[in-house]
């Protein structure tokens, strides 16, 4: 039972960090570059995509045994288009200012490859709850990435932070950051940084897990490894 719960929630965490749609899977690049001229735009675009992702994943998962394999892609597109239209309608009514800024990209959520990729590779093969968790995880990861990108581009390009003017940046701001070229530049640099940091963290977690496994299966070997590590620590400590 415990394992089942872990399996259910695993897609949530892996979607945010390990399978981050923007920096790891490099999916949905078009809206990523187009709307991240401001942090708030990125945040709202990410949240809109998350809503569509969660809902479409849920419906596709529920219909996975009904939808024939031959027409699965048009069926997925129909489901995704329905939810992206709902988001567009709601945003137009209740958030008109935001709709003015990114109306076109909301409609284009339907062709965002993240949605079709998750429908095809995950929700069409898995039950409801893991599919919802996958949608939520990937969506939150996408939101986080878009907000971060928007934050950097807005700060250096427009001299503001979440729409609030930053005084000292007014003479230092560089318009290129909010232009497409700047978008590619920031995207590339952030991708490098993300993979360096997350890659290093993953290595450490893997090493920790290996040590724990050895300690459980072979206590003698674990003791020897510990002694070796203590010796190394002593060596490096001495150098300091």
């Amino acid at each position: 039972m415990k394992r089942n719960i872990r399996d259910t929630f695993e897609p949530l965490t892996s979607g945010v960090i390990k399978n981050n749609a923007t920096f790891r899977l490099v999916l949905g690049t078009c809206p990523t570059l187009a709307v991240t001229t401001a942090a708030l735009n990125g945040l709202y675009m990410g949240l809109a995509t998350t809503f569509v992702l969660v809902c479409s994943n849920a419906i596709i998962s529920l219909l996975r045994k009904i939808i024939p394999r031959k027409v699965r892609i048009p069926a997925y597109i129909l489901v995704i288009a329905t939810f992206s239209t709902i988001v567009e309608m709601v945003m137009r009514k209740f958030l008109p200012d935001l709709y003015e800024v990114m109306g076109l990209f909301i409609a284009l959520i339907v062709v965002n490859c993240i949605l079709l990729a998750r429908a095809e590779s995950f929700s069409s093969l898995n039950p409801l709850l893991p599919s919802v968790m996958d949608g939520l995880g990937i969506g939150l990861g996408f939101t986080m990435s878009l907000t971060l990108l928007g934050l950097v581009r807005e700060f250096f390009g427009a001299g503001s932070f979440f729409g609030l003017t930053v005084g000292f940046m007014q003479n230092l701001k560089m318009t290129v950051f909010i232009l497409p070229a700047g978008g590619f530049m920031v995207y590339g640099l952030m991708m490098v940084l993300y993979n360096l940091v997350v890659g290093e963290l993953e290595k450490k977690i893997e090493a920790y897990k290996n040590r724990k496994y050895i300690a459980l299966t072979n206590p003698l070997l674990a003791e020897q490894e510990e002694a070796e590590q203590a010796r190394r620590r002593g060596l490096f400590g001495g150098n300091k």
Partner: peptide, 29 residues
């Protein structure tokens, strides 16, 4: 098999249209 494919797609499209029509009633600007 062809009929099944058509029916499944038509039913999904119909449900989608109904859902959108209802939401449009509340969100029309």
């Amino acid at each position: 098999e062809s009929i099944r494919l058509i029916v499944v797609l038509a039913v999904i499209a119909l449900i989608s249209s109904l859902l959108l029509a209802v939401i449009n009633m509340f969100t029309q600007v």
